[in-house]
């Protein structure tokens, strides 16, 4: 499990490498929350290109971070998700508030609009 952060303007891009389940969720949560605090972040984009597995624990992690970013009047988006993760996100209904984009560029410009 490894998380890479990068910034584009006021947007924090979060790339999770590995598996997101209940066991790794706490680590992921803490890493992202402290990164949001220390930078000029207002928006977040989850890049799931290197996420090899996710179960419903991931939904909690995404919604929790979304709530934090809403306090800063920011937006959240998701890119590069596979079919299995898409099904889980779809089921939970979170795609109504956190849209999925095809490319990172598209997601970054959408949240910074």
């Amino acid at each position: 499990m490894h998380i890479k952060f990068s910034n584009r303007g006021t947007t924090l891009i979060i790339r999770i490498n590995g598996e997101l389940d209940h066991h790794t969720a706490e680590y992921v949560r803490q890493k992202i929350d402290s990164e949001i605090l220390k930078s000029t972040t207002r928006n977040i984009v989850f890049d799931f290109s290197e996420l090899s597995f996710m179960d419903s624990s991931g939904i909690g992690v995404i919604i929790g971070r979304y709530k934090n970013i809403r306090k800063l009047n920011g937006k959240a988006a998701v890119v590069n998700i596979n079919d299995q993760i898409m099904r889980i996100l779809n089921m939970s209904g979170i795609l109504k508030i956190i849209p999925v984009y095809k490319s990172l560029d598209e997601a970054v410009s959408a949240v910074q609009e």
Binding site: S56, S57, I59, G60, V61, I63, R87, M91
Partner: peptide, 23 residues
């Protein structure tokens, strides 16, 4: 039931059984 969780304080989504049923 979808979205039901007995532990709302834990940032759980309440989707566990729904995911099992769907997969």
């Amino acid at each position: 039931q979808p979205l039901y969780t007995s532990k709302p304080e834990l940032e759980r989504s309440g989707m566990g059984f729904t995911v099992m049923e769907s997969f």
